[in-house]
């Protein structure tokens, strides 16, 4: 499409190279999926430990949380991908990506779960006690369900946060969306087209999740959870 020498957008180019973006998006999504899943598991485990204030373990986990929240994912990835091989531990790009996401995400999820657990009122626990439930049963039937429900909006916010963080994966030799965009700009100088497709790709991934999150938040508020 050309108008008076001022080129608008090369739609043909976009159509030709769209599949590259789709493949890259799939890579991003699959790495995000595993990273987020492990982060949730790690987070729940750590959150419970912090909630029960288990002596030595809580200290260690608090240390882990502070360490991972105060350092950028990029630096964590560099350490995993370039640093570890020097002591004989070689992890693939995909492995580093997932481990990095888990390490970073786990601490954020742990905070969400911990505060969700602590938000369950003491009177709920006492109600459980007064009908004879033991500690484990109270956590399982009374505290955990309520804590999880309350945590959902914050968990979603973390999911979005983690997916955004995956944009650095090209630094550890992964052909993700940023890599594809940069490549196309470098090879064909179709900057506007490449950037537009990049933005669209991320919008397609993130907008639905963001809308779903707002929807869930509204429904939870209606059901009487949270404020």
């Amino acid at each position: 499409m050309e108008l008076e020498g001022f080129e608008v957008l090369d739609l043909v180019f976009m159509k030709t190279y769209a599949p590259l973006f789709v493949t890259a998006a799939k890579l991003t999504l699959s790495l995000s999926f595993w990273g987020i899943l492990f982060a949730l598991v790690v987070g729940l485990f750590c959150g419970l430990i912090l909630y029960f204030k288990i002596p030595v373990a809580s200290r260690i986990i608090s240390g882990y949380v502070e360490l991972s929240r105060n350092t950028p994912l990029l630096v964590q990835l560099f350490l995993l991908y370039f640093g570890l091989p020097k002591v004989g531990i070689i992890i693939s790009s995909e492995g580093c990506a997932i481990i990095g996401l888990t390490f970073l995400g786990g601490s954020y999820m742990a905070e969400v779960f911990r505060s969700g657990l602590e938000s369950v009122e003491k009177s709920q626990i006492e109600s459980g006690m007064s009908i004879g439930l033991d500690r484990l049963q109270i956590v399982r039937y009374v505290v955990l369900p309520q804590a999880l429900t309350v945590s959902v909006p914050a968990l979603f916010a973390n999911v979005i946060f983690l997916i955004k963080e995956t944009s650095v994966f090209s630094a550890v030799a992964l052909a993700d969306l940023m890599y594809v965009a940069k490549d196309l700009i470098g090879l064909y100088y179709k900057t506007n087209e490449a950037l537009l497709m990049l933005v669209i790709a991320y919008l397609v991934i993130l907008l639905p999740i963001s809308l779903l999150s707002s929807l869930l938040e509204r429904r939870l508020r209606y059901a009487g959870f949270g404020n």
């Binding site: 979005i160 955004k164 963080e165 995956t166 944009s167 650095v168 940023m178 965009a181 940069k182 950037l195 990049l198 933005v199 991320y202 919008l203 993130l206 907008l207 963001s210």
Partner: peptide, 10 residues
């Protein structure tokens, strides 16, 4: 919503 790296590229 946009990753900051994308905005940087833009």
């Amino acid at each position: 919503l946009m990753p900051q790296l994308v905005s940087l590229f833009l």
